[in-house]
Every structure is written in C-alpha cells, then in structure tokens.
Amino acid sequence: MVENRPFVTILAHLVLIFGVALVALPVWITFVGASHDGARMLQAPIPMWPGDQFFVNLRQTFLGNGLDGTRTAPVWMMMFNSLVMAMMIAVGKIAISLLSAYAIVYFKFPFRMGVFWMIFITLMLPVEVRILPTFEVIADLGMLNSYWGLTVPLIASATATFMFRQVFLTIPDEMLESARIDGAGPMRFFWDILLPLSRTNIAALFVILFIYGWNQYLWPLLITTDANMMTIVVSIKQMLEASEQTPQWNIIMMTALLAMVPPIIVVIAMQRLFVKGLTETDK
C-alpha cells in the first residue's frame, strides 16, 4: 500500500467480502439444498440455512441409483467414471505432449516443422466444431461407451506440447551437451535429466488437465449411451430433465455438490501449481 488511507482499505475489504459472498452464493444455496429433505425443498421460499439431512442425502445419493424415474447409475460409479476419464485425459495428454515436444526440440528430422504445424492446427479444432464427424470416427472404431472413446480423442494437445516445448527451450543447451559427454543416450537423457527438470511444470499441467478432464460435458454426452459409462457431470443434465416431472432437489443438489467438490479441492489444495499451470499454458 502506497499511502495510509484507512477508509479505502476498509472499502476494499468490504467490496472483496461482498464479491466473495456473491461468487459463493450459488454454492451455498446448493449446499443448503443438499442438507434438507426432499419435501422441504419443494416449498417456496427455499431455506437459506442448512438443515440436518445432509448425511442422509449424501448416503442416499452416493450409494443409491440417482433419482427415482431416471436410469442413471449410482453416483459413486459415475464419480469413478469421471475420475478415470480425468486421469486418463490428464496423464495421456501430458505423456504424448512430453514425447512430441521432446522430439521437436531435441531432434532434427525431416517433417519436423510439418509435425509442429500439424499439432498447431489442433488448437484450431476444438471438439465443438467437429462434433459429428468425430463421433462417426469413434462409432466406426467401435469406441462408443468405452473409456478409450471418452478420452483418446481429447488427448491430442497443442497447448501442452507448446508449453513443454517452451520449458525445454529454457533448459540450457549445456545440459544436453554435458549428458552426451557423460554418455547418456536420447531416452536416458529424457528420463534422467529432462523429466526431473520438468517436474513442476508437469504437476501444474496435471492440475489444469485434471479439471479439464473431469468437467468434460459435450463429448461424454455424445459418446456414452450406457448408463454405467456416464460421468457425474453429464448426469446432472439427466437429473434436471427428470426433475421436471418429479423434482428431488435435495438429491440433485447433492449430486451437483459431489460433482464439483473433487476439482475444487484440487484447485484449492494445489493453488500454487494451479496458478502456475493456468498462467503458463495461456489456455
């Protein structure tokens, strides 16, 4: 703070507290909604203060078969699907991006620039603009309703490749020269030197990609028709539709809570890595 103006400082805190409250409000309402019984959640105005049914709802939601009248799998199974999808996407993206960035930076080979531009192009082809044909490819390959179908089309990544390329470029050339004089071959150099030196970047990227993977919506919506393959994020939509006939807001809110808690925990627990990942990949 440059000068002492208590009034402005107090104002700053007030505005920030108001902002935090406003941002948190929807989640608070969700939490409150998840802590009352179904009947209470049908009377307007809905409560603003938590009730005592939280653990009852948690138990029913987590283990039960979702809503009455929907064909969703148990929430724990959908959370497991989400976890598998998020992990596969994060690990897969990191692995193939590390390898291709390594090839592009440390090897000189014909078509190197061609490969670089091909990877660059993926930046311009988000899933949303090629929905139908990509769906057809997955269908033709028989990958519908499988973890592979859910994840593999999403793991090509220009941003991750570019980030690792950037990281590798900042590693002094002498590391490689020294390793070569020490007698390290390409894969040995990759394992012994490059990977350990990129550790924090890998972790930061993992945090971002885990959230990205967990929160996928459109793609799983298309690829999974089998209730047992559904992810928890996608199931919310199903539940909202069902609620138009038989609203069970306490269960929906609990499911929503369960769907957002894992990535939120990741962000808050690994805040430093999260910020690093977000600012360095530049999206």
Binding site: F107, V115, M118, T122, P133, A156
Partner: peptide, 26 residues
C-alpha cells in the same frame, strides 16, 4: 541427437491421434 527413427516414434502418438480424431473429422 544423431538422426534415427526415434523422433518419429516419439511424435507418433500425437500425430496419429491428431490425424484420426482432428484432421480427418475436420
């Protein structure tokens, strides 16, 4: 590193996925 097949193997996963799920559908 001296020329070899290795770089092609390294970029292969990325390139295959890009071609099959990005460039071909596009």
């Amino acid at each position: 590193f001296p020329p070899s097949l290795l770089p092609y193997l390294l970029v292969a996963p990325q390139v295959i996925i890009t071609v099959v799920f990005f460039i071909w559908p596009a």
